[in-house]
Design a protein around this nucleic acid. Structure first.
Lengths: 136, 136
DNA sequence: CTGTATCCCCTATGATACTG
DNA sequence: CAGTATCATAGGGGATACAG
């Protein structure tokens, strides 16, 4: 399927869950969702700026647990966005950096992150209006 | 903070969870994450093409439960992305459409969705390589 | 047709302790 | 320093029945 030509409805139907293996082939649910774990985009944002070591990332995002940092990094590495380089020092050090695929993906992702930063207020106002209208 | 000027590290520090109310003010965790419920982007994609009624969306995304359709639509409406118009017919009909804010956001979001479609294979190959290397 | 109301489950996430 | 292992929990999400 040509993603630039197909209509949204065609895409959804094509990737729809009812078709054989459809769900597993849906790039939105299968690819995009992995970028939106609770911590993924923050880590990608940091690494897009420059490579960093495990402990550095941990200090950078103070409220992430060690477990989630490990897991999120491994998931991002698994999907091909991160390169993990181990330096044989004592104690060991490990540096994470974006791959070409990761950089390519982050170009698109960052548009949305920037939009969020620039429109944070508008969204919060919408929320407040919705709630004060008693719709919630 | 000027989102276009600040470095990633400055942003993360500024929005960091340890500062007073920091987490609540982080646009990434606060805004972006809402766009990535299991169903949000699919629904936004459909509605970006043209408005649709409740039942239409349900048929369009066959594996969504009625409960999650209702809830996802309400959340998107609450954040200001969707307009909900009730027509006083019998039986009642309700039409959902993107607001200006929603269209604006979808412009950025769609870049990432398109990237995902175009690079789905690369990601899957990376995953397969990672797994077959026994790293998983 | 467009929802609500329940009940239930599973996965994502957190806290803590331990290791090469 | 850079992880694992284990246990515990909250909330996202599903199934089903009911309602205006």
């Amino acid at each position: 399927m040509d993603a630039t030509q197909a209509t949204a409805r065609q895409k959804i139907a094509y990737y729809g869950a009812t078709s054989e293996g459809g769900l597993a082939n849906c790039p939105i649910r299968n690819v995009v969702r992995n970028v939106f774990g609770k911590w993924s985009s923050l880590l990608l944002m940091a690494l897009a700026e420059r490579p960093a070591r495990f402990g550095e990332l941990r200090r950078l995002v103070p409220d992430i647990s060690q477990r989630m940092l490990t897991e999120t990094l491994r998931d991002l590495q698994r999907d091909g966005y991160l390169h993990r380089e181990v330096f044989d020092t004592t104690p060991p050090s490990v540096e994470y950096s974006l791959t070409d695929l990761g950089r390519s993906m982050y170009e698109s992702l960052s548009q949305l992150l920037l939009w969020a930063e620039n429109n944070h207020d508008a969204v919060r106002k919408a929320r407040a209006a919705f709630d004060s209208a008693g719709l919630r």
